[in-house]
Structure formats: C-alpha cells, structure tokens
C-alpha cells in the first residue's frame, strides 16, 4: 500500500514539475546549447555563409587582442557594485518604513516607489538624457540655481557617464527590490516583534536579531537576484549611451550583444555569432565565479547566525 502511494506521489511530483521543466528546457537551455556550438567557429550568423571551424581562435582573440572586452569587465564590476550597494539598502529601508501597519496611505507610497519600474527602459533612458545632458539638462540648471556649481557639468562625458548610468539603474530598481523585501517581511509574524518589544529590545537589536535572520533564505535569494541582474543589465545603457563615450559605459553583456545585433541603427559592428558566443561564455563564467564567491560568503554568514 505504502509503496503504491509512494509511486503515486512520485508521479504527482514529476507531473507538477513538468510544465515548468518543459518551458525551461525549450526556452532557456536549448537556445544556449544552440549558441554555444558557435564558440569554436567563425560565424557571422544566419545569412552570412557557413560557419568556419577555427578551434580556440576566438578565445585567443578575447585574451590577447581585445582590450575593450577587459575594459567592459571592469566597467561591469563598477556598475554592478555601485548599483547593488545603493539599491539594496535603499529598497530594504523603504520596505521597512512601508510595512508599518499604522501608517496611513502606505499603499500609495509604495505605488509611487514602484512607478519607475513600469516605465519602459527606452523611455526612461530618454528622460534621463534630457535631465542630465550638458547643455540644457534640468540637473545642471538646479545645481546652478542652488549655487552648488558655477559651470555646467558634462554628466554624460567619458568621465561621468557611468555615474549617471548607476543613478538611472538605482532609480529604476528600488521599486523592484522594495517589493521583494516587503514580500519577505510579510513572512515574519508580528508576535515575534511583540515579544521582543516586551523584552525591551531596541530598533537595532530587532533589526539584527529578528528581521535579518528571519528573512534568511529570502534575503539570500534577493541578493542573488540583485547580483545576477546587475551583471546582466544592459537595456538602459544601450539606449542611453550605447556603451560610450569611448566605451566608458560598455558592460560585458552589451559588448557581447553587439556581435549579435547592432546596438543602434548607425552601428557598423559586423555580426559575429562565433565571437559573440565566446564573449558571452567568458562573461557568464565571470558572473558565475562572483556568484559562487557570494554563496560561499553567505554560507559563512549562515553559520554565524
């Protein structure tokens, strides 16, 4: 009887997994296998002739002849680091403030913070261009009226563009992570806080002894998502600076992308599926190493708590 039940249960388990598994394999895994084949070829994509086998030549090019890629790796680290360090604390803070049950109009406040994530990145990037441009941007105007600066700052120059990109992505990201945090905080029951209150715990104690440990797996998950998406972000960069000026905002996956599709209608970079696949592969390895390092680190944290 039991074994029959067991078999039935196993069947149910696989049945429940199957819809997601089918989608996962056909839409996530298969395309990647399709592309990975090209890593050892010189191939310009459909419509450019047959792939030519060149062995490891693409990797030779990446490691010896491609300073832009390595620049893009550094840029990605700067971008992702900046974004994560700003967006996660701010979003967590917003979530903490906006889960207070006695706060009136909390829904409206959340909606406001969520607004930026609705606007499409194409539009968002355009608006930020209008705000930050050097000649008549709103930001320069305000800074000059407030006498903070006396000369307009060239925000989108090679020196400053990355800062603007990070600001844009933080603006667009707070809402998202706030929602993740709110969902996570909902799982902590009020009773825990109440008993802590009775024991006279202060805010910081509650934060570090209850909230953060109890968020546990969700917090870890959110940080993972933050890391992986920050490393893969490219759509707003693509519209705002196209990776420029002088590759100062070129990130790894945008760099890989341009070998598959032109970034802008005026771009004349040849499509190179083979090389692009290799660049994507190396980039994915870099993200992988960083995420594994993070997981190791967070496991250590688990042991402390």
């Amino acid at each position: 009887m039991i074994s029959k039940n067991k078999i039935k249960q196993k069947g149910q388990i696989y049945l429940m997994l199957s819809p997601n598994l089918i989608l996962f394999f056909t839409l996530s895994v298969y395309p990647i296998i399709w592309v990975i084949r090209f890593m050892f070829y010189q191939y310009g994509g459909p419509g450019t002739g047959e792939p030519i086998f060149i062995g490891l030549d693409n990797f030779r090019r990446i490691f010896t002849k491609d300073p832009i890629f390595w620049k893009s790796v550094i840029n990605t680290l700067v971008y992702a680091g900046g974004k994560i360090l700003l967006v996660l604390p701010l979003a967590f803070f917003a979530a903490m403030m906006l889960t207070k049950k006695n706060l009136k109009g909390v829904g409206a406040f959340r909606a406001i913070l969520f607004m930026p994530t609705i606007l499409s990145s194409a539009v968002m990037a355009l608006v930020f261009y209008l705000l930050f441009n050097a000649y008549n941007g709103e930001i320069n105007k305000y800074l000059m009226t407030l006498n903070i600066i006396d000369q307009p700052i060239n925000w989108l120059s090679a020196k400053n563009a990355m800062k603007v990109i990070v600001i844009t992505s933080v603006w667009g990201g707070i809402g998202n992570y706030m929602i993740y945090f709110i969902a996570g905080l909902q799982g902590i029951s009020n009773e825990v806080y109440e008993s802590a209150d009775i024991e006279g715990a202060n805010f910081t104690q509650k934060l570090f002894c209850i909230t953060i440990p109890m968020l546990g797996p969700v917090l870890k998950m959110i940080m993972m998502i933050a890391i992986v998406t920050a490393f893969q972000d490219m759509s707003s960069i693509m519209v705002m600076t196209e990776g420029g000026p002088i590759n100062s905002t070129m990130v790894m996956f945008l760099y890989a992308y341009q070998f598959f599709f032109p970034i802008s209608p005026g771009s004349l970079v040849s499509t190179q599926f083979g090389y692009g696949a290799s660049v994507s592969f190396v980039s994915a390895c870099i993200v992988g190493i960083i995420t594994i390092a993070f997981l190791r680190f967070s496991r250590k944290l688990d042991e402390i708590y």
Binding site: I13, F260, A284
Partner: peptide, 29 residues
C-alpha cells in the same frame, strides 16, 4: 519533496541564472 534528479535540477537552474544571450535565443526558438 525529495526526488531523483533534484540536485541536478537545482544546479542546472542555478547555473542558468548566470547565462544570458539575450534576444539571440529568439533565433533557435
């Protein structure tokens, strides 16, 4: 639940989080 292939499934999912090829995936699809 525990089931055969769970570890494999989890690690495949985790690995796939790092990999992106963007719209290129649309060719094979």
């Amino acid at each position: 639940y525990k089931f055969a292939g769970k570890k494999l499934m989890l690690s495949t999912y985790q690995a796939m989080m790092f990999v992106t090829i963007g719209p290129v995936a649309l060719y094979p699809i």
